[in-house]
């Protein structure tokens, strides 16, 4: 089973990278852009066919390591 995991900053947390990209887009003429947020995307293969178990494992990984839940939130999709 494949897990696709997105980790992004929570709303309200300053994202200086997002701001820099927003300014760059603006200076390139993309004038209708707002609220750029930068996050991380991770993919991993899981040796697990039971969907519920796979979900519990991925959730555990996110809580323990992949996201810092003080400032970040995560979502994931399981495929296969």
């Amino acid at each position: 089973m494949k897990a696709k995991i997105h980790v992004t900053l929570k709303q309200g947390i300053l994202d200086p990278q997002g701001k820099a990209i927003e300014h760059a887009l603006d200076s390139l003429g993309f004038k209708n852009v707002a609220n750029v947020r930068v996050g991380k995307y991770m993919e991993l293969d899981l040796d697990q066919n039971d969907r519920a178990k796979a979900e519990a494992e991925v959730k555990g990984m996110c809580e323990k390591l992949l996201a810092n839940t003080i400032i970040e939130e995560y979502r994931y999709e399981l495929q296969g």
Binding site: I13, N68, I71
Partner: peptide, 16 residues
């Protein structure tokens, strides 16, 4: 901070 021995976390510097 990551170990939870102190509270809070670090963000990227405001200036990047």
């Amino acid at each position: 901070l990551e170990a939870g021995l102190l509270p809070g976390t670090m963000l990227r510097n405001k200036s990047l």
